[in-house]
Structures are given as structure tokens and as C-alpha cells.
């Protein structure tokens, strides 16, 4: 069933349809919220908030939008509300500090092994560090494009910015990554 059919079924009282929707989007949505907030606990809370808001008006998105566009619009607003509430101060930085193992380290860490594996691990750390250097606006566009699967045009509508602005932010994000990673690293 398509997302729209599942939501229609849920609106008609089929609870299983919602379970199917959650299963479909749990990984990309959770990881988007995780990357944007930098905190797994906050990402879990926002994840739940998003679906609670979705079910309160299951037909709110109407036929104008894709369900995924609506889902990530709600998620984006939830993340922005979280930052606006000032709760972001409590967020553990993605790259962590001396006392806490950062989320980045958890994402990157693996068992030491052959040189190739160590080299890959080092590259992953550099990528993680480069991602941490993206500005908030660049991060928004970059992670939305990666996790939501929405086109840049749809992302521009979601963020209420011109398409050119969305592409420009993405271009600058790519430039930051390229500067941090260097051309030689990737060609090795």
C-alpha cells in the first residue's frame, strides 16, 4: 500500500496501518532528528511527538503533498520548536566532550583491525568532524535531502525558501566537506 492509502486506512480506524507507516519511516526520521539535534534521547522524544501530531490530523496533508513531505515538515517544525525552547543548551554536542563519549564516536567506532579498517575509521571520523562544521542552515538542507528523499524543490517549499537558496546552501555544505576532507583523502 502507498503511504496515502495507509493513512486513509488509519483515518478509517485501522490501527495496523499506523504501525506500518511508523516502520517505514522510523529509520530515516529518527536519524534525521538525531543528526539535527545531536542527541539520541531528544531525537526519541521528537520522534514520538511527530507521530502524535500526525495522528491528530491524519488527513491534514490532503492530496497536495506527499506524505513524506508532510512527515518531514512536521519533524522539521518539531526540531525548530525544540531549539526555540532553549532546550538545545542541554544537548550533548555531536562530537562530545572529554567526559562523555560523543554521539559521533558512537556512530564511527568499530573494532580495530587491519590497516584498511583503521584507515576507514579515520576517514569516518574526519567525515563526522566535517559534518559537525556545517552551519545550521547547511545541515538542514543536507540532512533533509539525504534522509527524506524529497527533491530540492520540495525541500525549498518545506523550508519556505527559494529553490536557488536551498541549492546554494547545499553547495556550500559540499564545499565545507570538501575543504575538511580534502581531495587526496577521497581519491586514496
Amino acid at each position: 500500500m502507498t503511504d496515502a492509502e495507509l493513512m486513509d486506512a488509519f483515518a478509517d480506524g485501522e490501527s495496523d496501518a499506523l504501525g506500518e507507516i511508523i516502520s517505514r519511516y522510523k529509520t530515516p526520521l529518527f536519524n534525521y532528528l538525531l543528526r539535527i539535534t545531536g542527541n539520541a534521547d531528544v531525537a526519541e522524544d521528537l520522534f514520538q511527538d511527530v507521530f502524535v501530531k500526525i495522528v491528530r490530523s491524519p488527513k491534514a496533508y490532503g492530496e497536495r503533498f506527499k506524505f513524506s513531505a508532510w512527515l518531514f515538515t512536521v519533524a522539521h517544525h518539531a526540531a525548530m520548536d525544540y531549539f526555540r525552547r532553549g532546550s538545545a543548551q542541554k544537548t550533548v554536542a555531536l562530537d562530545g566532550d572529554a567526559e562523555n563519549q560523543g554521539l559521533a564516536e558512537r556512530l564511527v567506532s568499530g573494532e580495530p583491525g587491519p590497516d584498511q579498517a583503521v584507515q576507514n575509521l579515520e576517514l569516518k571520523r574526519r567525515i563526522e568532524k566535517a559534518l559537525a562544521l556545517l552551519s545550521g542552515e547547511q545541515r538542514e538542507v543536507f540532512y533533509l535531502r539525504h534522509y527524506s528523499g524529497l527533491s530540492f524543490k520540495e525541500i525549498a517549499v518545506l523550508l519556505k525558501i527559494p529553490l536557488g537558496t536551498a541549492l546554494a546552501r547545499m553547495s556550500r555544505a559540499a564545499a565545507v566537506l570538501r575543504r575538511e576532507l580534502g581531495d587526496k583523502e577521497l581519491s586514496a
Partner: peptide, 26 residues
């Protein structure tokens, strides 16, 4: 490279989160 890394590094939300979310949403 960045997209490949993000796919490898993605975290799978636990079953408890999915179940709890479904319960809350219902």
C-alpha cells in the same frame, strides 16, 4: 563519500521506541 558514510552510520531505533510511539499515537 558523505552519503555512503551516513548510510553505514545510521542508527536503528529500538523496537521499544516503535512500540511506545505507536501506543502514544493511538
Amino acid at each position: 563519500e558523505a552519503c555512503r558514510y551516513l548510510k553505514e552510520a545510521r542508527m536503528e531505533p529500538g523496537l521499544s521506541l516503535t512500540e511506545k510511539t505507536l501506543e502514544l499515537a493511538l
